[in-house]
């Protein structure tokens, strides 16, 4: 099965004269759950941020849903804002720092974009939000403000907020790295459920190795802006071929 929903072709990304991604080639198939692991600064977040159009690229082509993301159909002409909006609509993102809107209740956090962006009637948006709050187990907190919730609860709201836009791709950038250890489990639990019960394409950056091993179809090891090694979780975690992968895994397991 090869139906790439995300494809990076020779993508170059620089910050000043620091090349973060050097001709990256990378694909994710429709419905696939892919985990990106790798040392800090290796370009993992940059990959997600390029997809979500939070960062531009300096070379190559990124395809999302079969169309170039940053370019028009010819793959050369820079994309219009309308095109970027359409592509963004196919994706959702969950941030390390949650980034909930602090001035909106939990419910409004989830309904605001469906109402304002998708033009959903308020009642329908609310019904959708309630359904999602049930999924993430926060129904009783819907009238609270984010600061009244724990980090784990906030991140679950953020997941519901992203899902409310009905994306076909969900990007997670270290969703549990900002959480106290005892709150990590509840967030991973929600992500695991999504992975198991939905045909969503998921691209997840994480340092939770056991979780990565359990939920992903494929694990990608990033090192210095390049894919050093990728494969099925069992391969990567039990029998990596690359020395760098082995070192990295050894270091994270010891930590």
């Amino acid at each position: 099965m090869s139906d790439p929903i995300i494809r990076f072709d020779n993508v170059v990304k620089r910050f000043g004269d620091h090349t973060v991604l050097d001709r990256l080639n990378f694909t994710v198939n429709r419905g696939e759950k892919v985990t990106i692991i790798g040392p800090s600064g290796s370009g993992k977040s940059t990959v997600l941020r390029i997809l979500m159009t939070l960062e531009g690229i300096e070379g190559g082509v990124v395809h999302v849903g079969g169309e170039p993301l940053w370019h028009e159909a010819d793959g050369v002409t820079p994309a219009s804002e309308a095109h970027l909006r359409k592509k963004r609509g196919e994706m959702g993102m969950v941030f390390q720092q949650f980034n909930l809107f602090p001035h909106m209740t939990v419910l409004r956090n989830i309904t605001e974009a469906p109402v304002r962006v998708l033009g959903l009637p308020k009642a329908e948006a609310k019904a959708r939000a309630e359904e999602l709050l049930e999924l993430v187990g926060l129904t009783e907190h819907m009238s609270k403000f984010p600061h009244q919730l724990s980090g784990g609860q906030q991140q679950r709201v953020a997941i519901a907020r992203a899902l409310a836009m009905r994306p076909s791709i969900l990007l997670f950038d270290e969703p549990t790295s900002a959480l106290d250890p005892e709150l990590v489990g509840e967030v991973l639990g929600v992500i695991r459920r999504l992975a198991e019960e939905h045909d969503l394409t998921m691209l997840l950056v994480t340092h939770e190795m056991r979780f990565a091993r359990e939920v992903s179809d494929r694990v990608v090891f990033f090192d210095q802006g390049r894919i050093r090694e990728e494969g099925a979780p069992e391969e990567i975690f039990t029998d990596p071929t690359e020395e760098r992968t082995r070192e990295f895994l050894k270091a994270t397991l010891e930590a």
Partner: peptide, 8 residues
């Protein structure tokens, strides 16, 4: 960034 990701 969150607003952009939600397509505001």
């Amino acid at each position: 960034e969150a607003a952009l990701a939600l397509n505001f």
